[in-house]
Design a protein around this nucleic acid. Structure first.
Length: 414
RNA sequence: CGGGAAGUGGCCCAAUGGCUAGGGUACUUGGUUUGGGACCAAGUGGUUGUGGGUUCGAAUCCCACCUUCCCGACCA
């Protein structure tokens, strides 16, 4: 990425709150030109939204890769036959977008990918020597939701990171599962989220053990019970088993869900390998999902104020919004942004021929962690005014001081 | 799928049976501004969600459908 000029960018913020906005995150995503709604539950990511998705995806990739997982990309189109093998053509019938192609094949747009990954592994994995491995993808899923809700929180087409681990036995699965669990903690932490991990039902995925990662938000669709006394969350409403205090109901957004699948899919689809003793055995699987597009509203729900979004540094589409209030300073602003570019700092230069108020308001709405102002003060003393979005703290810095300031922040981030 | 609310220029709204459907904002042009959505002027843009009905006359009343949002059911 590099610096962008606002006047040349596809960013057209709305002055009024969109009427259809159901919650704060959705309101800011629409108002701030991150997202375009084509129809209920169907969205396009505009350039700003695309940048955020990219930032989130890079964080996920970093942690998945360092946990030893390998990225692949599976087809979204899936023949119905593979679903018949596991019987999930019936279980997921209602949410599947299903259709018949010109050759009279019945296809669906993948609502999830256990069946496909198992077909892949069935073909290639034949020996214990190949195990274990974990594969993942970041891809669009399609689900015919009965009621899309809260914008990207529940949509019919959404982006998911789904990973699948393959081991020779339960012990191996436990190791793979723990690795993913650890990676998930790192991912959500880096995304700036306060999250809760709890044991959960495995539902239509099947399997024995599963954990959910949830973030606190009034637009959440899951409910946990929180104990003010000791800070624990519980699935059931009951007096806290630890400290006997009354618990209170909290709404949560599910952002991740991991499952120990065991051999449910490998047995049904005949994904077997020869073990050390030459015995045919089904591979032991785990699956690990993150709602990538759902992370946008989840992060915003935890990070906003009256003006707009307050992006965590690792997620923001731009690291810095640089407001230029005097035309004569534009070239200087651009060369400054080029210097920042070398330090991996993405700058949105607001060079528009608009009043200062418009620029300040848009900067607040778009939500870069830092807003810098080059105007008459800069002309007087060469100091750039920097406002920290989150704390509203304002400081005046020379260019050199500012570069060092951002470098320092960048290092903290890493 | 059950219950509720709402559809009027791109966006936010007004007009409750009666003149050519208004205003704000956005956009275009000209001018003045320029540190918190500034001002003046002139413009572009509407078969009032769709179809039917009642009426001399419908954005407005009635019916059906469509769309969107909310609550619920469902939810990997």
């Amino acid at each position: 990425m590099s610096y962008s000029l606002f006047s040349k960018s596809f960013i057209f913020t709305a002055r009024e709150d969109p009427k259809a906005a159901e919650c704060d995150s959705q309101r800011f995503l629409l108002k701030g030109c991150y997202l375009f709604m084509l129809s209920s539950g169907i969205y396009s990511y505009l350039p700003l939204g695309r940048r955020v998705l990219e930032k989130i995806s890079m964080i996920i990739r970093k942690h998945m890769n360092s946990a030893g997982a390998q990225e692949l990309l599976m087809s979204a189109l899936q023949p119905i036959e593979i679903w018949k093998k596991t019987g999930r053509d019936k279980i997921l019938e209602e949410v599947m977008f299903k259709f018949i192609d010109r050759k009279k094949r019945t296809l669906c747009l993948g609502p999830t990918h256990e069946e496909v990954i198992t077909e892949i592994v069935r073909k290639y994995a034949s020996s214990y020597k190949q195990l274990p491995f974990t594969l993942y993808q970041i891809q669009t899923k399609f689900r015919d939701e009965p009621r899309p809700r809260f914008g990207l929180v529940r949509s019919c087409e959404f982006i998911m990171k789904d990973a699948y681990s393959f081991d020779g036995d339960e012990e191996g699965l436990n190791v793979s599962y723990e690795k993913m669990l650890k990676a998930y903690r790192s991912i959500f932490t880096e995304c700036g989220l306060q999250f809760v991990m709890t044991e959960a039902d495995s539902g239509a995925m099947g399997g024995s053990v599963s954990h959910e990662f949830l973030v606190l938000s009034p637009v959440g669709e899951d409910i946990l019970f929180y104990c003010r006394g000791c800070g624990h969350y519980y699935r059931q409403e009951q007096d806290c088993p630890q400290c006997k205090s009354k618990t209170e109901e909290k709404r949560m957004i599910e952002v991740g869900h991991i499952f120990k699948l065991g051999t449910k899919y490998s047995a049904a689809q005949n994904a077997v390998f020869l073990d050390r003793q030459g015995q045919r055995r089904p591979v032991v699987m785990g699956c690990y999902g993150i709602g990538v597009s759902r992370l946008l509203p989840a992060i915003i729900e935890q990070n906003f104020d009256a003006k707009g979004i307050i992006w965590p540094e690792a997620i923001s589409p731009f690291d810095l919004t640089l407001i230029v209030l005097d035309e004569s300073l534009l070239n200087e602003a651009i060369s400054f942004a080029q210097i920042l570019e070398r330090e991996d700092i993405d700058t949105l230069i607001d060079d528009r021929n608009d009043n200062a108020g418009v620029k300040f308001n848009d900067a607040g709405l778009i939500g870069s962690p830092y807003t810098a102002i080059m105007g008459k003060n800069y002309l007087h003393d060469g100091k750039i005014e920097v406002e920290v979005r989150k704390t509203k703290e304002r400081i005046s810095l020379s260019k050199e001081e500012f570069i060092n300031f951002l470098k320092e922040k960048n290092n903290e981030k890493k």
